Computed example of a mutant assay.
Amino acid sequence: MLTFSIPDLAALPAVAAQVRAAIDGHSIICFEGEMGAGKTTFIKALCRELGVAEEVSSPTFALVNEYRTARDEPIYHFDFYRLNAPREAEDIGVQEYFDSGYLCLVEWPSRIDALLPPDCLLLTLTVTGPSSRELAIMKYEL
Protein backbone atom coordinates (compact mmCIF):
# COMPACT_ATOMS: atom_id res chain seq x y z
CA MET A 1 0.00 0.00 0.00
CA LEU A 2 1.20 3.49 -0.88
CA THR A 3 0.05 6.53 1.06
CA PHE A 4 0.31 10.21 0.25
CA SER A 5 -0.33 13.18 2.47
CA ILE A 6 -2.25 16.06 0.91
CA PRO A 7 -1.88 18.97 3.35
CA ASP A 8 -3.94 21.38 1.22
CA LEU A 9 -5.25 22.05 -2.29
CA ALA A 10 -1.91 23.53 -3.34
CA ALA A 11 -0.34 20.08 -2.92
CA LEU A 12 -2.72 18.39 -5.37
CA PRO A 13 -0.61 18.80 -8.54
CA ALA A 14 2.48 17.24 -6.94
CA VAL A 15 0.50 14.36 -5.44
CA ALA A 16 -1.35 13.84 -8.74
CA ALA A 17 2.03 13.50 -10.51
CA GLN A 18 3.14 10.87 -7.98
CA VAL A 19 -0.15 9.00 -8.28
CA ARG A 20 0.08 9.09 -12.07
CA ALA A 21 3.36 7.19 -11.82
CA ALA A 22 1.93 4.77 -9.23
CA ILE A 23 -1.10 3.83 -11.36
CA ASP A 24 0.86 3.38 -14.58
CA GLY A 25 -0.10 0.08 -16.19
CA HIS A 26 -3.55 -0.03 -14.59
CA SER A 27 -6.65 0.98 -16.49
CA ILE A 28 -9.36 0.83 -13.82
CA ILE A 29 -8.84 3.09 -10.84
CA CYS A 30 -11.53 3.12 -8.15
CA PHE A 31 -12.03 6.03 -5.75
CA GLU A 32 -13.63 5.69 -2.33
CA GLY A 33 -14.05 8.20 0.45
CA GLU A 34 -16.84 9.83 2.36
CA MET A 35 -19.00 12.44 0.69
CA GLY A 36 -16.91 15.59 0.41
CA ALA A 37 -13.57 13.83 0.83
CA GLY A 38 -12.37 15.20 -2.50
CA LYS A 39 -12.69 12.32 -4.96
CA THR A 40 -13.78 14.52 -7.86
CA THR A 41 -11.32 17.26 -6.88
CA PHE A 42 -8.47 14.76 -6.95
CA ILE A 43 -9.68 13.32 -10.27
CA LYS A 44 -9.58 16.88 -11.70
CA ALA A 45 -5.93 17.21 -10.62
CA LEU A 46 -5.06 13.78 -12.00
CA CYS A 47 -6.71 14.58 -15.33
CA ARG A 48 -4.77 17.86 -15.56
CA GLU A 49 -1.60 15.83 -14.92
CA LEU A 50 -2.61 13.57 -17.82
CA GLY A 51 -3.01 16.56 -20.13
CA VAL A 52 -6.78 16.94 -20.12
CA ALA A 53 -7.49 20.52 -21.19
CA GLU A 54 -11.28 20.47 -20.96
CA GLU A 55 -13.37 20.99 -17.83
CA VAL A 56 -13.49 17.92 -15.57
CA SER A 57 -16.68 17.60 -13.57
CA SER A 58 -18.57 14.95 -11.66
CA PRO A 59 -20.78 12.75 -13.84
CA THR A 60 -23.23 12.33 -10.95
CA PHE A 61 -26.32 12.44 -13.16
CA ALA A 62 -24.83 11.34 -16.50
CA LEU A 63 -22.98 8.42 -14.81
CA VAL A 64 -20.00 8.79 -17.19
CA ASN A 65 -18.00 11.68 -18.67
CA GLU A 66 -15.34 11.31 -21.34
CA TYR A 67 -12.23 13.47 -21.48
CA ARG A 68 -9.24 13.46 -23.83
CA THR A 69 -5.60 13.34 -22.78
CA ALA A 70 -2.81 15.33 -24.43
CA ARG A 71 -2.25 12.22 -26.60
CA ASP A 72 -5.94 12.31 -27.65
CA GLU A 73 -6.74 9.12 -25.70
CA PRO A 74 -10.03 8.89 -23.83
CA ILE A 75 -10.38 8.87 -20.07
CA TYR A 76 -13.72 7.66 -18.73
CA HIS A 77 -14.91 9.13 -15.43
CA PHE A 78 -17.77 7.34 -13.67
CA ASP A 79 -19.79 8.35 -10.62
CA PHE A 80 -22.05 5.55 -9.38
CA TYR A 81 -23.29 7.27 -6.22
CA ARG A 82 -26.87 7.59 -7.48
CA LEU A 83 -27.19 4.05 -8.86
CA ASN A 84 -30.12 2.04 -7.58
CA ALA A 85 -28.71 -1.24 -8.91
CA PRO A 86 -25.60 -2.44 -10.80
CA ARG A 87 -27.90 -3.13 -13.75
CA GLU A 88 -27.97 0.61 -14.44
CA ALA A 89 -24.19 0.53 -15.00
CA GLU A 90 -24.60 -2.46 -17.29
CA ASP A 91 -27.21 -0.51 -19.25
CA ILE A 92 -24.71 2.22 -20.09
CA GLY A 93 -22.21 -0.40 -21.28
CA VAL A 94 -19.77 -0.22 -18.38
CA GLN A 95 -18.17 -3.55 -19.38
CA GLU A 96 -17.24 -2.16 -22.79
CA TYR A 97 -15.60 0.83 -21.12
CA PHE A 98 -13.68 -1.43 -18.73
CA ASP A 99 -12.64 -3.75 -21.57
CA SER A 100 -11.42 -0.83 -23.73
CA GLY A 101 -8.03 -0.70 -22.02
CA TYR A 102 -8.38 3.05 -21.59
CA LEU A 103 -8.22 4.72 -18.21
CA CYS A 104 -11.46 4.40 -16.24
CA LEU A 105 -11.79 6.48 -13.06
CA VAL A 106 -14.62 5.11 -10.93
CA GLU A 107 -16.19 6.96 -8.00
CA TRP A 108 -18.30 4.85 -5.60
CA PRO A 109 -17.13 1.47 -7.03
CA SER A 110 -18.71 -0.49 -4.18
CA ARG A 111 -22.07 0.09 -5.88
CA ILE A 112 -20.93 -2.10 -8.81
CA ASP A 113 -18.56 -4.58 -7.10
CA ALA A 114 -19.83 -7.53 -9.12
CA LEU A 115 -19.00 -5.76 -12.40
CA LEU A 116 -15.41 -4.83 -11.58
CA PRO A 117 -12.54 -6.90 -12.97
CA PRO A 118 -10.06 -8.32 -10.43
CA ASP A 119 -7.10 -6.09 -11.37
CA CYS A 120 -8.48 -2.72 -10.19
CA LEU A 121 -6.63 -0.30 -7.98
CA LEU A 122 -8.37 1.44 -5.10
CA LEU A 123 -7.55 5.00 -4.10
CA THR A 124 -9.09 5.91 -0.77
CA LEU A 125 -9.28 9.53 0.32
CA THR A 126 -9.55 10.13 4.04
CA VAL A 127 -10.31 13.52 5.57
CA THR A 128 -7.58 14.38 8.08
CA GLY A 129 -8.39 18.06 8.63
CA PRO A 130 -10.37 20.98 7.20
CA SER A 131 -8.31 21.03 3.99
CA SER A 132 -5.99 18.04 4.44
CA ARG A 133 -6.43 14.51 3.18
CA GLU A 134 -4.60 11.21 3.10
CA LEU A 135 -4.67 9.19 -0.08
CA ALA A 136 -3.96 5.44 0.02
CA ILE A 137 -3.46 3.23 -3.03
CA MET A 138 -3.99 -0.53 -2.84
CA LYS A 139 -5.37 -3.40 -4.87
CA TYR A 140 -9.16 -3.35 -4.92
CA GLU A 141 -10.47 -6.31 -2.94
CA LEU A 142 -13.76 -7.57 -4.32
Score class of each variant (00 low, 15 high):
residue 34 E to T: 09
residue 9 L to R: 14
residue 19 V to C: 01
residue 73 E to P: 06
residue 53 A to S: 13
residue 106 V to T: 05
residue 10 A to L: 07
residue 63 L to N: 09
residue 39 K to L: 03
residue 84 N to I: 10
residue 37 A to K: 05
residue 59 P to C: 05
residue 123 L to K: 00
residue 132 S to L: 03
residue 114 A to Y: 01
residue 4 F to W: 08
residue 71 R to E: 15
residue 17 A to G: 02
residue 18 Q to T: 04
residue 3 T to H: 12
residue 35 M to G: 02
residue 28 I to K: 09
residue 128 T to P: 05
residue 100 S to K: 09
residue 32 E to L: 00
residue 53 A to R: 14
residue 8 D to G: 04
residue 95 Q to S: 14
residue 135 L to V: 05
residue 141 E to F: 02
residue 43 I to G: 02
residue 53 A to D: 14
residue 102 Y to L: 06
residue 120 C to K: 10
residue 70 A to K: 15
residue 117 P to K: 14
residue 123 L to W: 00
residue 121 L to A: 01
residue 96 E to Q: 12
residue 106 V to Y: 02
residue 67 Y to F: 10
residue 114 A to R: 12
residue 108 W to S: 07
residue 19 V to N: 01
residue 138 M to K: 15
residue 122 L to N: 08
residue 100 S to G: 08
residue 30 C to E: 01
residue 6 I to E: 02
residue 57 S to G: 10
residue 2 L to S: 07
residue 21 A to S: 08
residue 40 T to P: 03
residue 118 P to C: 01
residue 9 L to I: 14
residue 47 C to H: 04
residue 9 L to A: 15
residue 134 E to Q: 12
residue 118 P to F: 00
residue 98 F to S: 11
residue 71 R to V: 02
residue 87 R to H: 08
residue 139 K to L: 02
residue 27 S to I: 01
residue 5 S to Q: 14
residue 49 E to T: 13
residue 142 L to Q: 15
residue 88 E to Q: 15
residue 47 C to Y: 06
residue 65 N to R: 12
residue 101 G to D: 07
residue 74 P to G: 04
residue 15 V to K: 03
residue 76 Y to Q: 10
residue 135 L to H: 04
residue 75 I to A: 04
residue 121 L to W: 03
residue 11 A to G: 09
residue 73 E to L: 11
residue 89 A to L: 09
residue 36 G to D: 05
residue 108 W to Q: 07
residue 20 R to N: 01
residue 92 I to E: 06
residue 129 G to F: 01
residue 13 P to W: 03
residue 131 S to N: 14
residue 108 W to M: 10
residue 126 T to Y: 03
residue 111 R to A: 12
residue 94 V to I: 15
residue 2 L to Y: 11
residue 111 R to W: 00
residue 37 A to H: 06
residue 121 L to D: 05
residue 98 F to V: 13
residue 8 D to H: 13
residue 9 L to E: 15
residue 80 F to H: 06
residue 134 E to F: 01
residue 8 D to M: 03
residue 58 S to A: 05
residue 76 Y to W: 11
residue 92 I to P: 03
residue 7 P to L: 13
residue 98 F to K: 11
residue 103 L to C: 02
residue 135 L to F: 01
residue 133 R to D: 01
residue 66 E to I: 09
residue 120 C to M: 08
residue 26 H to E: 04
residue 112 I to N: 08
residue 31 F to N: 05
residue 31 F to C: 07
residue 28 I to S: 03
residue 2 L to D: 10
residue 127 V to D: 03
residue 59 P to R: 06
residue 9 L to P: 13
residue 88 E to P: 10
residue 25 G to H: 05
residue 130 P to I: 13
residue 79 D to A: 04
residue 109 P to T: 00
residue 39 K to Q: 07
residue 46 L to S: 01
residue 49 E to I: 09
residue 35 M to L: 15
residue 106 V to M: 06
residue 2 L to I: 08
residue 25 G to N: 04
residue 103 L to W: 05
residue 44 K to F: 00
residue 67 Y to N: 12
residue 83 L to C: 10
